[in-house]
Design a protein around this nucleic acid. Structure first.
Lengths: 286, 286
DNA sequence: ATCACTTACGGGTGACGTAAAAATC
DNA sequence: GATTTTTACGTCACCCGTAAGTGAT
């Protein structure tokens, strides 16, 4: 059989046009590549190139071979990632999240439910989450909406409601018991975490005239917020998880718009239902 | 990337169950295969096997990997044959035939139309002919019936009519001018060539009570026929091509059944129409 | 003169086979 | 004791890089 490195070399030549350039990109010497192409022709027992003394170009056969070689290389890449994902899925519960809230809360339960497995968490956009779910990168994903598909199960798994976090001196702090709407705060400048998943789109849309001071590090965020007088955000989830640490003077005012409540859904491939039975039960019972 | 020989080794192990047996079939030593499997696991960074001290079996990951590896190997096989076929199609006019008649006649014209190309001819059954046409093994095929397909063109290219070849003393020789039907000769024993393509099915069907003495070598056939008193077969085509050689006493009597006339069709992939333009014109004009 | 490809030559990686050990049946 | 796998070790194939040669721009 013909080894993969020869197919890679052929594809590189097809991509870069000359032996020298292709060899450079392959990190091998140019004579080595020249020999590889000769060897490939020899093994295939076919002429793949039009050769002049100082130029080599793919002929029709060569173009076809390169196209087929590329598909083979892609198949192998796919195989490698599939095998790696599958293997790691046996040792780790890997989840993808659309927001930080569930990503902070759920791993606590997962480590209890699956004490021998590693737990890995990642935040990504919808598209990447669903792709990762299909390729086996994620065991399940948490979306901010229901997702119906014949290969998947979709389980509602709680909600998260956004709050404004204000210093008591802020005028809007008077609304503590009534709640506020986005429009009432539109135009204010907020301190905000850099990576808050789909919350980002929501706040941008509902507070079109506001400015947002982004803080990349979640660890530093609460310190930054406490050191500032600017309004910020919290949620019932973060308030519950971090109350003791954050509760130094700020007041939390519920946002009344229905958009401010995110309804999470856990999506799992049906073929993995068995494996996550405990988790599914946990979500359904709580 | 992971080289092909490792995937082949994995598939062999999957096929034969033990390292020893797989190594034997791969024509390598068993320790070599053991090392290859360790290397594969290392490269994939995944566990593929359940190992006991003297037994190695594929685990779930390994089974999946083997299945995907097998598909990759098939892809590469496909690529190799496709490239070889394509390359040889540039140097040879390769045709597949359903009967010997056109296979004897057409190469004469092909060598004249394509003086610089090799001409290769093969007789096969319908299924193999169409498969070979699609995979590029054949540039065109000659079928005994029309074949309509969106990827192909189908050109009628003459007919061939079967004759009985009899010694003058045979009672049926009286029908020289009228012709005979299959049923009139049913039950006779015939001398026949071993490989006559679809004629075989036809004669078996139309002469269900006859016996056939098969002669494998076409070269020896006419000698055998002439040395025998048994009836045999000829066709307008073979009579025309070999009249001088065969015409020693035997008389040829046309078979009247419509089934005894084969209407040939030349089938070519549309994408190859250009390449066989001369041939197509030739067939249409004669 | 520079660039691009091929041929020639020597070197090192790594895949192989043989041998031996360990463990199971 | 026979079979199967793994480890150890020496060998050889083969792929690589450097250097040199040829022809084209």
């Amino acid at each position: 059989m013909i080894e993969i490195y020869l197919l890679e070399a052929l594809c590189a030549l097809s991509d870069y046009g000359t032996l020298s350039s292709a060899a450079e990109h392959l990190h091998i010497s140019q004579p080595a590549l020249s020999r590889s192409m000769q060897k490939l022709e020899d093994l295939l027992d076919a002429s793949l190139f039009d050769r002049t003394k100082n130029r080599i170009t793919l002929n029709e056969t060569g173009k076809m071979a390169a196209a087929m070689a590329r598909r083979i290389l892609e198949s192998e890449e796919d195989m490698i990632t599939a095998v790696r994902n599958y293997d790691s899925s046996l040792h780790t519960v890997s989840a993808g999240y659309c927001t930080p809230g569930p990503m902070m809360e759920m791993p606590l339960h997962l480590t209890q439910l699956y004490p021998k497995m590693k737990v890995s968490s990642e935040m990504e956009n919808d598209e990447a989450l669903l792709k990762g779910l299909r390729t086996g990168k994620y065991g399940f994903v948490i979306l901010s909406h229901a997702y119906e598909d014949e290969d998947m199960v979709c389980i509602p798994c709680g909600s998260e409601s956004l709050y404004f976090s204000l210093i008591p001196a802020h005028p809007a702090a008077l609304f503590k018991d009534q709640g506020l709407t986005f429009s009432q705060m539109n135009g204010e400048t907020f301190v905000m975490a850099g990576d808050i998943g789909v919350w980002r789109d929501l706040t941008m849309k509902m507070l079109p005239d506001s400015r947002f001071v982004l803080q990349e590090s979640l660890e530093a965020l609460s310190a930054v917020i406490n050191a500032s007088t600017l309004p910020a955000f919290a949620s019932d989830l973060t308030i519950r998880l971090f109350r003791s640490r954050e509760d130094n003077g700020r007041i939390f005012i519920r946002i009344l718009d229905p958009e401010a409540t995110m309804h999470y859904h856990c999506v799992i491939l049906k073929k993995n239902q068995e494996r996550y039975a405990k988790w599914i039960t946990f979500l359904e019972e709580r």
